[in-house]
Amino acid sequence: MRDKLEKYALRSILIGYLIVLIVAPLSAVYVQGFSLGLSNFWKTVTDEMALHAITLTIRLAVIATLIQIIIGTLIAYVLTRYEFPGKRYLNSLVDLPFALPTAVSGVMFLMVLTPNSFVGQMLDSIGISLLFNQSAIIIGMVFVTFPFIVRAVQPLLENLDEDQVQASYTLGASKWRTFCKVVFPAILPGIIAGSLLAFSRALAEFGVIALISGNIPMETLVASVYIFGQIESFNTEGATAVSVVLLTFSFLVLWITNLTRRRGDI
């Protein structure tokens, strides 16, 4: 009898934990969002500033992900297929942008890009500024999403059957053709999964961007910073509406990721 009681107590605690920690807070956002009423919700979301923040975030996240696809695939390829001095250290460094607190990353890029630094001065002398504008946001997004594609592609490259590559050579195919026709299709699932993760992280990123984007409404204000601003000024409605949009987007990406992962298993 006591045994059973213990069992039920444990189960209740675990389910309760899940509800209190995750389910209830997430539902709170949606409940709050719908309590606005549809027309009100629509009005808040399509507010000029909010709408701009949302579209800007999506646009820049797409650009950052595209950049990441190129450099991530390149780095994964080099780190698995070539041996060279320092490789091990570089391989461990890949995760650093993920491990670094985002506030730290933000301060870091602030230091690099500020007009007082020699980098800032150099860029200034050729008429480029990378701070407090959209390129700053892209830099921040590329930095925080650095590990995702590399780490998603690496295991696929490691498992790539070397015989398939050699078979392609024996059939007369050049290295480049072999990469396009044999290697690339094999790592494509990793690139897709990695870029979905990177995209969703770029959408959600706050710390780095808050520090280096300048947060200028209608110019460099991204969705997460917009939400933060609305909370600060106690505008729950604005924060809720944009949160609902951003959350839904993130869940969608998560869902697609799981879908592709499951298909990849077969």
């Binding site: 956002v29 959408l203 959600a204 706050f206 997460s224 949160s243 959350l247 993130s250 869940f251 990406v253």
Partner: peptide, 12 residues
């Protein structure tokens, strides 16, 4: 889910 949620929304 927590992986997919923006930290700002997590706090909100």
């Amino acid at each position: 889910l927590p992986f997919a949620v923006s930290p700002v929304i997590g706090g909100f």
